[in-house]
Nucleic acid binder design. Sequence first.
DNA 1: CGGTTTTTTGTGCAGGCGGTCAAAAAGTCC
DNA 2: GGACTTTTTGACCGCCTGCACAAAAAACCG
Lengths: 199, 199
Amino acid sequence: MARTGRPRAFDKDQALERALLLFWSRGYGATSVQDLVDTLALERGSLYGAFGDKRQFYLAAVQLYWDTYERQLVTALEAGPVLPALREVLANPARAQEYASEAGVPQGCMIGNTTAELVPQDAEAREIVARSHARFTQIVADALRRAQADGEVTQAAAPEAQAQLLLFTVQGLSLVSRAGLDTAAALAAVDALIDALRA
Amino acid sequence: MARTGRPRAFDKDQALERALLLFWSRGYGATSVQDLVDTLALERGSLYGAFGDKRQFYLAAVQLYWDTYERQLVTALEAGPVLPALREVLANPARAQEYASEAGVPQGCMIGNTTAELVPQDAEAREIVARSHARFTQIVADALRRAQADGEVTQAAAPEAQAQLLLFTVQGLSLVSRAGLDTAAALAAVDALIDALRA
DNA sequence: CGGTTTTTTGTGCAGGCGGTCAAAAAGTCC
DNA sequence: GGACTTTTTGACCGCCTGCACAAAAAACCG
């Protein structure tokens, strides 16, 4: 119960959100502590005091990213037919680049970026990423199982295999979209997959 | 034709190959010039003299990576039925991690790693990556077009859309495999996709 | 052999990096 | 009001980075 002492002058959650955007768009290595200090408009010491070192700060941002994403995923899949919802899940990153430049939303999936940059050398990052993958496939497989029972989705493959395939696709799509993407072509590919899942 | 002067004491191609392995496993930022000097067993000056700066060196390695991959891809698809070949193309990265630790072969796809780490800030890297994507889809789409004509592959979607979907899948699979992968589950997902493409 | 060209070798360097720290400031508690 | 606790502030540090350079060495040419 240490609620004494000088109160923090900035909103910690809001700072984490802004750091998330910066890390998301530039990646871990290319984002310097100085960039964070400039963007968040707080001093170095405050940053280290509140979040620990740069690595912890980044991992906290990744966790926030996933928590947000998971919430949206669950919401999208919990009601109504599954295939249209899954199509949206896949189409979102395909369309994201159109807004990317104007709005502050960066490209690609932060889990995927972390996988490429940090996972080979950082066990904690690997855990976060692996857990995110597992939750994605579990949530999607559950939805697909229901949809198979309802006759909406083909039973040609197990829901787990279909969910794994969707994980690969969404990760690949998000990644490829960073290099620039023909939106129409990407959506055609998404449609091809969704159609293939139809019963 | 300057074939005079002191001859180079090391094999440039071999040095590039070794650098490729290092860059592949660690990424661009996490590989220091000192690492390269140590691993390649040549002095700083020689390295800069032969390859320019670190960035050019990396981009040359990426280009070599893609050239090698493209050659294998073309070979795999030019003869025989297309779907088994495509299954192999997808299954390879899924199985790669089994060998990864013992052999010197790193995880993931170097094009994908470059996409995540360099593309947002490096126009030249973006070009290399985008060109690789385009060639992949073109090569695969050509093969699928033949296979559709032969009645091997479903005509439910255009070959271009199918090829784009395969690009997403192979990129996603390679990426996800870096975080550790249940090989059996990954192969089941690959099978589900290949089956869905069957006529 | 002398001249030319190119690579090798190893040192040196400025800058930016992540991270630390001590003093000042701003609160709460008694 | 004075003690205590925590945050803020901004200077500071050592390290490592990518890179430049000059002298030596090793080839070819005439």
